Amino acid sequence: MRILICVKRVPAVGSRINVTADEQQVDTAHLGFTTSPHEECAVEEAAQIVERLDGDDHAVVVLTLGPEESTEQLRYAASVGGTELALVVAPGSLDWDPQRTAVAITDAVRELEAAGGEFDLILFGNESADGGNFQVGIRVAYALGRPIVNGIKGIDVTTSGIVARRETDAGYEVYELETPCALGVKEGINLPRYPTMKGRLASRKAQIAELDCAEGAAAGGQARVRLHRPPERASTTVMLGDSAAAAPAVVDLLDELGVL
């Protein structure tokens, strides 16, 4: 079975997030980075799936679109179960919104499949921890002509395909999908393992394939919208008294306002 996981390099959870001067991007100058938590769970789920399957003819391919520094996240994935790694180097001069990101990932998936065969299952995080756009996985699956279900909290491989479970307020929705297909995984589907020393050492030697970056889609762009507070109304203070003698005046005022 061939499984592809698309991951993203994001600011470390718990970091103090500052924005750039134009308030359109995260200022990454002094931030640490990690793998987006939903996608970290997707890597673990793929590793568990191949561990449950018989035989050795399985692949867990991890793909990311980002700067050269994203190799850090790829090597971490290799230390916890990834068997093949691929990096699409994203030019920093472009605005990588969901539309452009999906085009680049779709092109990379097609290149990987042309070289190594079709992926039975493609896993995405339900949404990225930084942008939270919920779009990339759906756009990629649509472009590849494959079914996708988001919000997944359980995956089983059967002889006929994939059974996926999505949690709802009333219980679980169960989806049966034929392969090839795609799923958007939510954090909590599993508890990601910690890498062993052996895994970390092996990940340093792992080969990372660099793929060409497709830049065909125009960026959608962002617009800043501000809500202005309405002007405050002037208020007038009226003293009705400062002793028990003011009680009748208070009653009369409440009656006038319709409270009594």
Rank of each mutant, 00 (worst) to 15 (best):
I3L: 15
A108K: 01
V60A: 13
P230S: 09
T196W: 08
D95F: 04
A246P: 05
I162G: 03
L123E: 07
V88A: 08
W96R: 02
V7P: 00
A102M: 08
R2I: 02
G137L: 01
E176L: 09
P147V: 06
Q24S: 06
R146D: 06
P230E: 12
D54H: 12
V10R: 00
A104P: 00
V174L: 10
E127F: 10
F33W: 01
V163G: 08
T34F: 00
A102Y: 11
G199E: 01
R16Y: 09
G92Y: 00
E118S: 07
W96S: 02
L201G: 08
E44W: 07
I17R: 10
C213Q: 06
G131F: 00
G131M: 01
Y142Q: 13
A247F: 05
L201P: 02
T64E: 04
R229H: 11
V251H: 10
Y172M: 07
C213Y: 04
L63K: 06
G154Q: 12
S70C: 11
R226A: 15
G14K: 00
L65R: 03
I208R: 09
G137S: 09
L260S: 11
P11Q: 05
V259G: 02
I208L: 11
L227A: 15
L254G: 06
V140R: 02
G161M: 12
L94R: 09
P11N: 02
L112S: 02
R224Y: 00
L201K: 14
R110I: 02
G131S: 13
V251D: 10
L4T: 02
G154E: 13
L121M: 13
A141F: 07
D107G: 07
S79R: 01
T83A: 05
G92M: 04
K205G: 03
I152Y: 02
R139F: 13
G151P: 02
A77L: 05
H30E: 15
N126P: 01
A182V: 11
T236K: 10
V26T: 08
E167R: 15
K153V: 15
D27M: 08
L183R: 07
A115H: 10
D57K: 14
A129L: 13
G161P: 01
V89N: 14
L53C: 14
E127G: 00
G221Y: 00
T168R: 11
V26I: 15
N18Q: 13
G220Y: 00
A143D: 11
I148G: 01
D97T: 01
G32P: 07
T34E: 15
G241N: 04
P230Q: 12
E72A: 14
A223H: 06
A29D: 11
A249F: 06
E178N: 13
D130N: 02
I189Q: 09
G92L: 05
E84Q: 15
G221N: 10
E69A: 12
L94H: 11
G220M: 10
L177Q: 14
A244D: 14
P230D: 12
Y175I: 08
W96K: 03
T106Y: 03
A247R: 09
R166K: 15
